[in-house]
Design a protein around this nucleic acid. Structure first.
Lengths: 188, 188
DNA sequence: GTCTATAATACGATAGAC
DNA sequence: GTCTATCGTATTATAGAC
């Protein structure tokens, strides 16, 4: 694997775990086992350019990963439960939820850097669109599907926050039981 | 107002806006118009002690504020809509959602500082308990009330994140329309 | 209780050798 | 393409005068 790709992969994980300001360049260099000069060769505009590259790479990963799950299950209800289950397993084995959440980056950077805010916005939109498409397949109206998809993205994101805070997967487990009821209500 | 209280009030706002690592001591000193010596007199253990004091103070503010709203409306459905409306107004006038969200602090600090994680956990628990009590008043079973309250806290928190990312209050507006349906379903 | 001065360190970024 | 050395400037924290 080439250096640039390796930097992006490692930095993505670090940014998700500790946020943008929380990760120093030195930490990234150490984790990648490269020097400062090498990093600035691949990312001339430094740390912010690297972050945006990470968010764009994350967009591809999330798209593939979530779409894989959503293709395996016939209904949105089953698919989202499978997705939450995967988040729970990841949280219980790794202790963190790197992979789908980047809320710390949003909170820190949304008001500071417009390019970063935009990249985050695309990520949320991507997840939401996968949910929406599946819900339309399920027979929901486009309008209902979009509202529900947005709400589910918000609920899962907030649920991960609660898991992190409580050091427990209980919040996401509860949410995976409650969310199907939300879909049920709309279907009636 | 005494200095210590003023430091806590100003620092709380800054921490909520930019996160813990995002706010330097110097920025806090400038905003409070005090010197470094004064701050370390009131908080001998420095920045982290100040953050925890802020989170504890926030606990009181949120409790009062949310309970006020919840006492004004007969049902949880109306109360939570009023609460979300208040968040939307705040977001549209101030551009940020300082007051109820501290997700950046959670993301940054949950794995780094156990005292901070615990203080954040108490805050979420407080909000959840207010929701739960109201839902029980509404006639929900304790178990259903707790699950729904947790889900609503997560959904609102995630919704604020989406508003921040999209620079729009649309996500919370959508959520305030969807959430009542969730309560409806459980009530049946 | 508040101040200034200082310490020690970490930050992101740049220059230039190889 | 990768390296080391260096530059300013941030950071948190401490010591001691008033």
């Amino acid at each position: 694997m080439d250096t640039k790709t390796r930097i992006i992969e490692i930095a993505t994980k670090l940014f998700q775990q500790k946020g943008y300001i929380g990760v120093g360049l030195s930490e990234i260099l150490k984790a990648c086992n490269i020097s400062k000069g090498s990093l600035y060769h691949h990312f001339p505009n430094g740390k912010e350019e690297l972050l945006i590259a990470c968010l764009e790479s994350l967009n591809d990963v999330i798209t593939q990963d979530i779409e894989n799950i959503f293709n395996q299950y016939p209904t949105t209800k089953e698919a989202i439960n499978a997705m939450i289950d995967q988040l729970i397993v990841h949280f219980e084995t790794e202790g963190t939820i790197a992979g789908y959440t980047f809320s710390s980056i949003v909170s820190e950077m949304a008001s500071l850097s417009e390019p970063v805010r935009h990249a985050c916005s695309l990520l949320y939109a991507k997840m939401q669109s996968i949910y929406t498409n599946k819900l339309v397949e399920d027979g929901f109206s486009t309008e209902a599907a979009e509202s529900l998809a947005l709400t589910m993205v918000a609920t899962v994101e907030g649920g991960m926050m609660l898991c992190l805070t409580q050091k427990s997967s209980f919040p996401l487990k509860t949410i995976s039981l409650v969310v199907p009821n939300l879909l049920q209500e709309f279907q009636n």
